[in-house]
Amino acid sequence: MDAIRIHGAVATKVKGMESKMLNDDDYINLLNAKSITECARYLKEKTSYGRFLADVDVETVQRGALEGHIKENIIYNIDKIIHYYSGSYKEFINTFFAKYEIEDLKDLAREVYKKGKIENYEDNVFVGKYSKAEPSKILDAKSVRDIIIALKDTAFGKYTIPLLDDNRGENLFRFEMTLDMAYYSILQKEWDKLSPADQETIRNVFGTIGDVLNIQWIYRGKKFYNIEPQLLLNYTINLYNRLNFRKIKELCYQSSLSQFLDKARETRYGFLFKNDETIDIYMDRRMHRYIYYYLQKIDRNTNMNIINVVAYILLLEFEARDIISIIEIIRYDVPEDEGKKYLIKNIH
């Protein structure tokens, strides 16, 4: 009964919102586009993204700006959902803004680290959405440290202040890692306030996401950066489903990459490491696609649960990622059949 009170209205709403997502035909039409202009025009005239492209001149639109408008769709829909919730549920949905804002902040930090200033920010539409930081302050940054200072009195300040320690200097890597960890900490704090049934499904889904992210992190840390095991372990996310802390630790302490791969292939997530040649190219896609179908399955089998909304938002995120991939596919002239392989959604 309580679940219906909490989720009844929003479940119906979300079903309606799902129907506005792109279908296979849309994907194919977008992939068939010859130029970014054509792609933008299709989005503007034929899809629900048109709302955000109304004032955009498709002839001259830049890739960054277009990506920003595509991400606005996520803000728009999350804002809509937030209206239907109150109290702790509202706060929980709000953490998605934290997630996307952190991605944007990382993006900006990388830019400022490389160039000493921020020039391209049109696609970073989430800045300030969760933290309530003033976007102008962050965009004025001349160094990563400036961004950290700008975040000082915001919701992220608690996590980023230790980075200001004078002894340690500026470090992009640590900034990114700290923010990522902050997100999972915020997320868990908020979901602790949900109803037990909701908590259970959420723990399951995010546990699985955590598993996949952890195993990917350990793999990359070992292969590309040769990070020491204890550091690898400290930067894992404490969200576990099938790979608990003990197993993660074991993976971290494998002394060589091949030993790690042997162990990893024994786990449920062995599919990520299927074929030596394509591991790195398709890892992201395999990971996302796994989560994508996992979410769809859970969504179908669960009713009146927060997971229906969470699945919708994450699928929306995947859709945005796919559109951005398609834009890149068009931009770099990847053949359509080849391009399809980089998309999260499986297009036949």
Binding site: I161, P162, R168, M177, M181, E228, L231
Partner: peptide, 14 residues
């Protein structure tokens, strides 16, 4: 040095 790096990953504040 090692300790420094290790604790840094834990986001410590001295």
């Amino acid at each position: 040095e090692e300790i420094e790096r290790l604790f840094a990953t834990l986001n410590y504040q001295e």
